[in-house]
Design a protein around this nucleic acid. Structure first.
Length: 319
DNA sequence: TGCCAGGCGGGGT
DNA sequence: ACCCCGCATGGC
């Protein structure tokens, strides 16, 4: 049981910064962490600490002994994107053929961050799989390993498996449908247990290419995975995770060949490159490529309610 | 049934 | 520096 260690009101700060908290909390979230009115945000896995944040901005932090309250509060604020000023990103987006509508309708969205371990697992689960398949793997992982904590007065909250959990029962990775990706997750877990992985703070200080190279030393972690994990965990956006989906859409929208997409993307988005990739998946509902290309042609560049997508994921039970 | 999906590494040229 | 293939799994 985790006790409540602090309570804070983020509504004023969100309003001042133009942050749309419902979007921040709902996008790319699961039903077991967001119910439409409040979200559970994992601030630390070992030992566990969790924040409960309402769409009204009221937040409570829960932790055991030994974790610093001020540090957890700062982590929460940073994970919600409140320490980041994306004004330049949205300014660039306003005149972009892919993200212009998103910039006018979704400027209050901020990327919700996560720890490096879970960011890497998340990115590995997107490899060579559909959006739907990747997120089903993650939901099953949380479900199969069955970790969680009780919050004082708020009930049970599931937690992702820790690296130790994965190493003590790696078979559950395949039960969760990871297939050959399971070996990569095991190798990542080994690095964490041996303390061979830089923490988010170190990653934030490293030069981007160096940070990418250090993650790529794990077999099974390539550019896409390393870059997506850097964006999700350290808010480092200089290097875009270009997959075949983004490559095809950008090639069409920017009028360049597939091989030229990365340099065109970085020229356009600069230090916001990876954020633009994630935003594009939200704008186009991570639709399968054929459908996403059709939406680009039709100018349907805003999230559409209904089907399973980054913005509606939280309202579906995937397992 | 067969093919593809938000990659990757290894082995070819 | 490229090109090409197989890789587990699930969805259609």
């Amino acid at each position: 049981m985790l006790r409540r260690v602090s309570e804070l009101d983020l509504s004023g700060e969100c309003q001042r910064l133009g942050v749309d908290l419902p979007k921040v909390l709902s996008v790319y979230n699961f039903h077991f962490w967001f119910n439409g009115s409040s979200a559970k945000i994992v601030l630390s896995l070992e030992p566990p600490a969790v924040a409960s944040v309402g769409i009204d901005g009221l937040a409570r932090v829960y932790a055991g002994e030994g974790l610093d309250r001020a540090e957890l509060e700062e982590r929460l604020v940073s994970v919600l994107g409140l320490r980041e000023d994306p004004a330049e990103f949205y300014r660039l987006a306003r005149s972009d053929p892919l993200l212009a509508p998103f910039a006018s309708e979704w400027a209050g969205w901020r990327l919700r961050g996560t720890g490096l371990w879970w960011a890497l697992v998340t990115a590995v689960c997107q490899q060579n799989a559909s959006f739907r398949q990747g997120w089903r793997m993650l939901a099953k992982l949380v479900n199969r390993y069955g970790r969680g904590v009780e919050l004082e007065g708020e009930g049970w909250v599931p937690l992702p498996p820790s690296p130790h959990d994965v190493l003590s029962d790696p078979g559950k990775l395949r039960e969760a449908g990871l297939g050959y990706r399971a070996d990569t997750v095991v190798r990542i877990a080994e690095r964490f247990v041996r303390g061979e992985v830089p923490d988010e703070g170190e990653l934030a200080r490293m030069e981007a290419g160096e940070a990418e190279r250090s993650l790529k030393t794990v077999r099974g972690v390539g550019s896409y995975t390393a870059r997506l994990a850097l964006a999700l965990s350290a808010r480092r956006y200089e290097l875009p995770p270009i997959d075949r989906w983004v490559r095809a859409l950008a090639s069409r929208a920017y009028g360049v060949s597939g091989g030229e997409v990365e340099s065109a993307w970085v020229n356009r988005w600069g230090r916001w490159s990876a954020l633009a990739v994630v935003a594009l998946t939200v704008a186009l509902d991570a639709a399968p490529l054929r459908e996403a290309l059709a939406r680009l042609e039709a100018g349907r560049l805003l999230p559409e309610p209904g089907k399973l997508s980054p913005s509606t994921l939280w309202s579906f039970a995937l397992c």
